[in-house]
Amino acid sequence: MASPATTLQSALLLQKQLKELSKHPVEGFSAGLADNDNIYEWEIMIIGPPDTLYEGGFFKARMTFPKDYPLMPPKLKFISEMWHPNVYPDGEVCISILHPPGEDKYGYEDAGERWMPVHTVETILLSVISMLSTPNDESPANIEAAKDWREDYPAFKKKVQRIVRRSADML
């Protein structure tokens, strides 16, 4: 459990990052608090990157920060429907920089690829946008999506296009 000092430091850091994103928005996403009384719960809107299957989509996500952020990574979960090899069926995003720091017990990831306290909301979301552009099907979170991606790309593309259309209709 995080100490009161750690919790205060993480809250101040998150307020600073939120203020910075408000002053200097980054193309491809927007971020704000899900509830003004909770700095640890953020609502994210990711815009499907140009020249990808997700182009034209608007994908809502929730980023939940631990009280010991930035020592430990937040969790990012799509609220909008998502079909992607690196997104679990429940919407949780599985990318290296969101995995706890240190060595991977399975030996798949190098410690340098995992969470580091230098990461910010901006670097995380830019990594997610990159993930949408280039899925990693070597270590899939969604086995069915990875299988479609590798073995039946037209079916994968059709599912993603349907999700993109639905996401635009939800706005």
Rank of each mutant, 00 (worst) to 15 (best):
I79W: 10
I46W: 01
P101R: 11
E55K: 15
S30P: 13
C94F: 03
G28R: 05
A61D: 07
N86Q: 02
Y40N: 07
A31K: 08
P85S: 05
I47L: 15
K75Q: 14
S96Q: 06
K105L: 12
E55H: 13
G107Q: 12
G91Y: 11
M72R: 14
E41P: 01
D104P: 06
Y106M: 13
F29Y: 12
I79G: 03
S30I: 01
V87E: 00
Y54S: 14
E43H: 14
V93K: 06
L33R: 15
I97Y: 02
G91I: 03
I95M: 00
I95D: 00
N38M: 05
V87G: 01
Y40L: 11
S96G: 03
P50K: 15
P74N: 11
H99N: 07
F29R: 03
W83P: 03
G91L: 06
L76T: 02
V87A: 03
S30T: 15
P70N: 03
E43W: 09
M45W: 07
R62P: 00
K75I: 04
Y88T: 03
L71R: 12
P66L: 04
P101G: 10
P101C: 05
A31Q: 05
P70R: 05
I46T: 08
N38A: 05
D35L: 06
Y54I: 01
K60F: 10
D51S: 13
G56D: 05
D90Y: 06
L76F: 11
I46K: 00
F78D: 14
P101L: 07
M82C: 05
P74R: 07
F65V: 10
K60P: 07
P101T: 11
W83T: 02
